[in-house]
Design a protein around this nucleic acid. Structure first.
Length: 919
RNA sequence: AGGCACGUACGUCAAUGGUAGACGGCUUCCCUUACAAGGAAGAGGUUGGGGGUUCGAAUCCCUCCGUGCCUACCA
């Protein structure tokens, strides 16, 4: 047997994925059961420009755990992949590449530029799909989509036209967020508001026909050139006499009125606000209310226009600010300047300061769509957010306050708006240019130059990827999807919009559940970010610890925010190694054993193998029976295995990834490795070939095999690697839905666990053995008995059943605690020079240590034990002393406490006895 | 400015109102033929402070302190 002592993840990672993908195991078609339930996940499409980061790795791991789990459970499973064209990011990337060649996109022209983007995508886009394969993601690549594909583009146009015809999409002239760098409008969600240490400037405006001046405070003095009013609060007595007055706007020859508006907060600044309708969203609203002129003094490049006056025209906005301040200073109209912190809007892509501008754009009315989404939540509680608190409320609150969505973008890369204009400027919205011509009755049409917001096509993703607007088989089969796994930062940007569009065009919600993942923070507790250089590249972690270890580490993160801690991955790397070596042990001792034929689905533990052992010819004498009947530890591990399967199943059903991981970890390491393997060793490593040994080996392999299946969704590579090596696994281990496939653990049936195989009696008895062994180990350790030294074990157990339990495990106990002999009797009869301990059910333990025992040390050890018990007893006694507790707590609970006190009392008196014996 | 979370061992995190746990780290012993990426035995907590509800609180309520996140039209 040639298995290395250390697990090398690289090897397994290289071989299996390609085989799985080529064999078509990831595609739902592998499932041949026409009645199979369906499980669908559509991936949040990563940007075509993107590369894998920790957030992806987390999301993908969770999606893959669910997908593999459902697939093994016989579901017709589709995990549909794809990428987003990411308008601004991609255009920026290609623009930068052009810049290196000394060209701008305008040198190429629109058509050539787009060609260039496609070329870039073909050559270096989608790097992330390679990385996702590395993750082991069981994605159906045959259905991979791209938001700019022709069929998805068709869906975009269809939606646009239908919404336009319903009056929900319209063109309008409004103040918008403008990025002077990217030269496009942005939606509110694409703007970051960042705190900024700035100044508040107090400017004085002379009142016409008076010596008075009105002081206004502003953070942007340059916009005063576009002021068309000054507003005060209607009830502000300081200014009541000035209402209707005219101000002489400095640096210009314009006169502007003083108006009253509720918006103005008399407490802030001077209580008078300069109003610049063309360059501030609030002022814009006020301007509309008061019918003020919109004077554009800043252009799309953030430079001052001719309207700003000759001296300022062409100046950058910040240069203009300096000049305005200078002139105010000279005129003696600059009252004061104070430090002031405020928030400033920046383009989330390029970080340029946003310039609010009035511009003609396409908008989408959201009232109807919002009501549809809110209706789904109210009537069906869909989608179900996990964790429900706080996300459900965050989501609905946001919807309730929704405003119109700016959907046009002044970019070249994206879905060009399907609207055409004739020479008179009339607009014709249509699915194709031909359709538009027909509508217009003219062929002289020009298409709108703008493209749609990237999130427009993303909003359609759950159904456009399945073939909509055609009634495809995929659409009927896989919509709505089962769950969306995503980070919380795109709940508004994406999740809500998918729900609204899904409700509008499909009816049902696009996904039943939304699982919101936590955030992996950097070790310093900050967000991982490229600019801070504190990020951890998942690919580096894969290289260092292996994909499986990384995956299971991430899986247990689930929905909590966690600081990245490499030690955790290391510990799961060790876990992988533990699995490897446990399997190594089983395989090194598998001669003569082989896993038998297994019915599918083998959902119920290992009943077949174990039942068959019981029904095999036992012979007449008790000894022979003893060799074939399952021993206590066999019944115990089956019980543990089934409990584990049941727990993992319910944990995954509730998206409790952390619990699923913990359960599996402890089952494998503690139950299987530390106890079951150790207790099996007597039989498994026996020199004598024979039925007893073969059965023990088969049982061991069988438990291992099922444990691997349970672990597979979390650790796909190592489990497949080991499963393939197990003697006797084959096609008959596959779930019945996958009868045609070659043997692979990823299509084997996921153990569901069988409550009838949970054997509480066996677990109780096993606990007695574990307790005994632990006590002996404690004595050995505290008495400094050399590991090689053999000791005699004396057990006194008045209870006959308990005695039988101990007797049945004498060989195992003896081996594990390195005993020269283990004597079980009714009454303990041990020499004075013994270390003693109290066991379960009134049993007692003594380890004779003539010449080795340090009486003083032994007394201390017993005393310590006594103190522990006393402390617990005190607590419980206090509870019982409280009459309210006895009266009001459930009787069950009170009885529990009484039993425990009785038990402690007995142990204490035994310990006391032991102590006295030492005197 | 509002809203929402969170604060548990040295670190990262768990714990339907019912004896506060895991992993890593730490101490001691052991290269015992699956695994030193291992085994065994230990130490370590008035659950951020204070108050309340309850027979019983890490958990529910109030308050203070600290930390995050989201939303917002205060020039």
């Amino acid at each position: 047997m040639d298995i290395p002592k250390q697990y090398d993840p690289k090897e397994a990672e290289q071989s299996h994925y390609e085989r799985w993908e080529k064999a078509g195991y990831f595609a739902p078609e592998i499932n041949r059961d026409p009645n199979a339930p369906v499980f669908t996940i559509v991936i949040p499409p990563p940007n075509v420009t993107g590369s894998l980061h920790m957030g992806h790795a987390l999301q993908h791991t969770l999606m893959d755990v669910l997908t593999r789990y459902k697939r093994m459970s016989g579901f017709r499973t589709l995990w549909l992949p794809g990428m987003d064209h990411a308008g601004i990011s991609t255009q920026l990337m290609v623009t930068r590449a052009l810049k290196k060649e000394g060209k701008s996109r305008h040198d190429l022209g629109r058509e050539k530029f787009i060609e260039r983007v496609w070329q870039w995508k073909a050559e270096s886009g989608g790097q992330i799909t390679v990385q996702m394969r590395r993750e082991g993601a069981s994605i159906d690549w045959s259905r991979e989509k791209f938001t700019m594909d022709e069929d998805l583009s068709r869906a975009v146009r269809e939606v646009f036209v239908r919404l336009y015809e319903e009056g929900m999409i319209y063109r309008g002239n409004r103040i918008v967020n403008w990025c002077p760098q990217d030269q496009t409008v942005l939606s509110d969600l694409e703007v970051d508001k960042l705190p900024q240490a700035g100044k508040l400037y107090y400017l004085q405006y002379p009142v016409k026909g008076s010596d008075r001046r009105v002081t206004v405070a502003t953070t942007r003095p340059e916009t005063m050139l576009g002021d068309t009013a000054v507003a005060v609060s209607p009830n502000d007595e300081r200014y009541s006499d000035l209402l209707g007055a005219t101000l002489l706007l400095p640096l210009t020859d314009r006169e502007i009125p003083v108006i009253a508006d509720e918006f103005v907060d008399p407490q802030f600044g001077t209580g008078a606000v300069k109003v610049t309708p063309a360059h501030d969203p609030n002022d814009y609203e006020m301007g509309v209310r008061h019918n003020l002129p919109q004077l554009v003094v800043i252009d799309q490049f953030a430079k001052m226009t001719a309207e700003a006056g000759e001296r300022f025209a062409g100046l950058d906005r910040y240069k203009a600010r300096e000049k305005v301040l200078e002139e105010f200073e000279q005129l003696g109209l600059l009252e004061k300047v104070v430090d002031y912190e405020f928030s400033i809007s920046k383009c989330e892509r390029c970080k340029t300061v946003i310039e609010p501008l009035i511009s003609t754009q396409w908008f989408m009315r959201m009232e109807q769509l919002r009501d549809l989404a809110l209706g789904l939540m109210a009537s069906k509680k869909k989608p179900q957010f996990v964790p429900e608190v706080p996300y459900e409320r965050v989501y609905t609150n946001w919807l309730e306050n929704l405003r119109d969505w700016t959907i046009s973008r002044q970019l070249w890369w994206g879905h060009q708006i399907p609207a055409w204009y004739n020479n008179e400027g009339e607009v014709f919205v249509a699915r194709t240019e031909a359709e538009a011509r027909e509508k217009a009755g003219s062929s002289e049409l020009t298409q709108d130059q703008d493209v749609l917001d990237t999130w427009f096509s993303s909003a359609l993703w759950p159904f456009s990827t399945l073939g909509w607007p055609d009634e495809t088989k995929d659409l009927k089969t896989f919509y709505p999807s089962s769950v969306l796994v995503t980070a919380r930062d795109i709940i508004f940007l994406w999740v809500s919009r998918m729900v609204m569009m899904g409700a509008k065009f499909m009816g049902p919600e696009p996904f039943a559940d939304v699982f919101v993942t936590g955030t992996i923070l950097a070790a310093d507790g900050q967000r991982m970010s490229k600019t801070k250089l504190n990020g951890v590249d998942p690919l580096d972690v894969f290289d260092k610890f292996g994909v499986d270890a990384t995956r299971i580490t991430l899986a247990q993160v689930g929905s909590t925010d966690t600081r990245w801690n490499e030690k955790q991955v290391e510990s799961y790397r060790n876990f992988a190694n533990k699995i490897w070596n446990a399997a190594r042990f089983c395989l090194m001792n598998s001669d003569g054993a082989s896993l038998g034929p297994q019915a599918s689905p083998p959902a119920r533990g290992d009943k077949e193998n174990f039942d068959s052992t019981e029904s095999s010819p036992a012979g007449g004498d008790a000894r022979a029976t003893n060799t074939v009947a399952p021993a206590l530890h066999d019944r115990w591990i089956i019980s543990r295995l089934n409990k584990t399967a049941l727990d993992v199943g319910s944990a995954l059903a509730g998206y409790q990834f952390h619990e699923a991981v913990q359960t599996l970890y402890h089952f494998f390491w503690d139950d299987f490795c530390d106890w079951y393997i150790e207790l099996s060793k007597n039989d498994v490593t026996s020199e004598e070939p024979g039925e007893r040994r073969t059965l023990a080996r088969t049982r061991l392999l069988s438990v291992l095999e099922q444990a691997l299946r349970l672990l597979h969704p979390f650790m796909p590579y190592i489990t497949e690697e080991l499963w393939q090596r197990l003697p006797g696994v084959g096609k008959n281990y596959l779930h019945s839905a996958y009868a045609d496939a070659e043997p692979t653990i990823m299509l084997a049936a996921y153990p569901v666990g069988d409550a009838s195989l949970v054997d509480e009696q066996a677990e109780f008895e096993m606990q007695a053995i574990i307790d005994l062994i632990s006590r002996v180990r404690n004595i050995r350790s505290e008495m400094n008995i050399k590991p090689a030294e053999r000791v005699q074990i004396l057990v006194g157990a008045p209870d006959e059943k308990l005695r039988k339990v101990y007797e049945g495990a004498v060989d195992q106990i003896s081996r594990i605690v390195r005993a020269s002999s283990v004597l079980i009797s009714e009454q303990l009869d041990a020499p004075r020079a013994s270390a003693r301990a109290v066991l379960t059910g009134g049993a007692e333990l003594a380890v004779p240590l003539e010449g080795l025992i340090d009486f003083d040390q032994e007394r201390q050890r017993l005393k310590k034990e006594q103190d522990k018990l006393q402390a617990e007893a005190d607590k419980l006694e206090a509870q019982l002393q409280n009459p309210n507790f006895v009266d009001r707590a459930p009787a069950e609970r009170v009885a529990e406490v009484r039993d425990r006190i009785t038990d402690i009392a007995q142990r204490k008196s035994q310990l006391q006895q032991n102590l006295e014996n030492l005197q």
